[in-house]
Design a protein around this nucleic acid. Structure first.
Length: 384
RNA sequence: GCUGGAGUCGUCUAGUGGCAAUGACAAGAGACUGUAAAUCUCUCGCGCUUCGCGCUUCGUAGGUUCGAGUCCUACCUCCAGCA
């Protein structure tokens, strides 16, 4: 495929929400977009055909995991990730930066200027991932979008650490860009800086100066970060990102976060939540509920709960997905109780489709310049 | 009928004088945001004012003991072998 080309078609009159298209050669997709996550070159429990039926654009895979197994050489020998996993659509590979957070965050000494030390969870052998190595792996994987190798610090990190970290992430971004050598692959930079205005601005401006094919906002939705901080991180980053490049909010998320992200000018999102929730028996459904603190939260139902045993209605009567069109809550409940994989598959299809339908609804609202009303309505009712 | 073995939370199970009593499953609920997650956490005899207190429990009924699921006696039921 060719490098990604983003075209901005329309910006909402009353917000930063924007409608655009991303083109990869002759494939064109609309944004805002939600990207399903397929860490190990598969969206867990789903075939590529099932994923395709939810109408996604790009899907994700992970550099760190594929580096360990099957190794980038094997993927390259299979003619690249598309051929290997039988996914003809665009693929974005995360750089392994998130694994710096999830696997090395408690061992700060393992995070060095040159790169990050990991211990393989497969056989315990020591591993060392550098910005150059990450990019070289992604070149071999032949994904359509490669991500710069960044440090994804925890939300709880202090200002001093965040500044150090983002400056190192900038040096890593430059090092990665210098060795990037796949002419068909785009390379994105990552903005860090926590919820601090000065740090986000510094990170965004310097990352843009390096020049990438698209920009992402990282370090968000980690740990117990509150939503206000996430929204600040977006607000403090977006103004410094070029309008003609794709904006990607990494690792997000929940339906409310997609709406708030789009409202603030984000184009694409990814999150493990729809597929993980599905494997744990939860379905995203319209409406709101309250969290432990009484704050409004996205609505979901746990189909494992006894109350669904004889509920012969669709998981979400408003949904057009394969699961909701053909199966009942009682049947999904039964499959989950029996630990049949098909239950997880059906809910994965539904949850992914739920977020993609939300994006479709947002695109329609932006197109008609009613996104502000759409957002307010969604925040008040959880419906779209 | 005789001999031997066994009866503990919905199920299986640990327990050999200090026990409301082990573990697993089942059940009830919760968490999950660039996937070390088809995982993890909590509850699971009853009742309370629940970092605690009270009550009732290990087939049934007695007994020994400061104290019994654990020891003794009888009975009931089940299993195996012999008649």
């Amino acid at each position: 495929m060719n490098k990604v080309k983003y075209t901005l078609h329309h910006t909402d009159q009353h917000s930063a929400a924007r409608l655009g298209t991303v083109r990869f050669g002759d494939q064109v997709y609309e944004t805002p977009m939600f990207m399903p996550v397929g860490t190990q070159a598969t969206v867990k429990t789903l075939s590529p055909e099932q994923v395709a039926a939810t109408h996604p654009g790009i899907i994700l895979a992970n550099t760190y995991h594929l580096w360990l197994r099957p190794t980038p050489e094997v993927v390259a020998a299979a003619s690249g990730l598309h051929q290997f996993m039988h996914w003809p659509g665009p693929i974005l590979t995360d750089s392994g930066g998130y694994q710096v957070f999830s696997l090395a965050k408690n061992k700060k000494k393992d995070i060095t200027e040159n790169g990050v030390h990991f211990k393989s969870e497969l056989d315990g052998r020591p591993l060392f991932l550098t910005p150059e190595k990450s990019i070289q792996i992604q070149n071999l994987l032949d994904s359509d979008i490669a991500m710069s190798f960044d440090e994804c610090p925890p939300a709880s990190a202090d200002h001093r650490y965040l500044k150090h970290s983002l400056e190192r992430t900038l040096r890593w971004a430059a090092r990665g860009k210098a060795v990037h050598s796949n002419p068909n692959q785009s390379l994105f930079g990552i903005v860090q800086g926590g919820a601090h205005e000065g740090l986000r601005r510094l990170s965004a401006e310097e990352t843009v100066k390096l020049g990438f094919d698209g920009y992402s906002i990282g370090g968000v939705a980690n740990d117990d970060e509150c939503k206000e901080d996430m929204y600040k991180a977006i607000d403090f980053s977006v103004p410094y990102l070029p309008a003609d490049k794709l904006r990607y909010l990494m690792g997000v998320g929940e339906p409310v976060d997609l709406v708030e992200g789009v409202y603030r000018g984000v184009d694409i999102f990814d999150c493990v939540s729809p597929t993980r929730l599905a494997r744990h028996g939860n379905a995203l459904v319209p409406g709101l509920r309250q969290d432990a603190q009484g704050n409004p939260k996205e609505n979901r139902i746990n189909l494992k709960n006894a109350r669904f045993k004889t509920d012969f209605t669709p998981v979400d009567p408003t949904c057009d997905c394969y699961c909701c069109q053909n199966y009942t809550r009682a049947y999904v409940h039964h499959l989950l109780r029996c630990e049949e994989t098909f239950g997880a598959s059906l809910l994965s299809i539904h949850n992914i489709r739920f977020l993609i339908r939300l994006c479709e609804a947002m695109r329609a609202a932006i197109k008609e310049d009613r996104f502000t009303a759409f957002r307010e309505d969604f925040l008040a009712t959880g419906k779209f």
